[in-house]
Amino acid sequence: MVKELVQQAIDQGIPAQDILEQGLLSGMGMIGEKFKNNEVYVPEVLVAARAMNMGTALLKPLIAEAGIESVGKVCIGTVQGDLHDIGKNLVKMMMEGKGLEVIDLGTDVPPEKFVEAVVENGCQIICCSALLTTTMGVMEEVVKAVEAAGLRDKVKVMVGGAPVTDAYCQQIGADKYTADAASAADAAVELCRELAG
């Protein structure tokens, strides 16, 4: 369905950038708002994200051709010792829905891996997800690893997951916490803008 519509739009000569922003991303933005307000939930967001991904797959080559830059680059993962990934996947989708390029490191990600991903891909933001009170502590190690690698002023660290709080974020010296995936995406765009400006 979405695929056909996107193809139609391409065939009509609408610029890829416009299809993406006014078609797909704005749709995802609406879903994000509804998610924030508790009007839709995880399954609906996943369906929407799947649809969006089908559309973006068609647009990717065109956008690359046109040499349009992404809003920013992010790497995301569930921290070492933790295998919960549903929340992390939602954050990833919402961020993609805001036009960010997201590198997914998967689950059980040790601190060094986050740092490596930043070095290799030039990410502006590291996103850590933790769902267990026993693995939350790894987030602090990520912050320390970033410091140790001398990258602290170049990348921002975002943290989240059910047991994480704003106070905890500040306590471990991370940069940003949000409670839900849609706000996480907004915050990430904001942080990228700050870093650029």
């Binding site: 995880v42 399954p43 996943l46 295998l83 919960h84 990934d85 549903i86 689950t107």
Partner: peptide
């Protein structure tokens, strides 16, 4: 954990 069947069933 990491089981794709569970993850799909969970969302469903």
């Amino acid at each position: 954990s990491g089981d794709p069947v569970f993850r799909d069933q969970y969302v469903e």
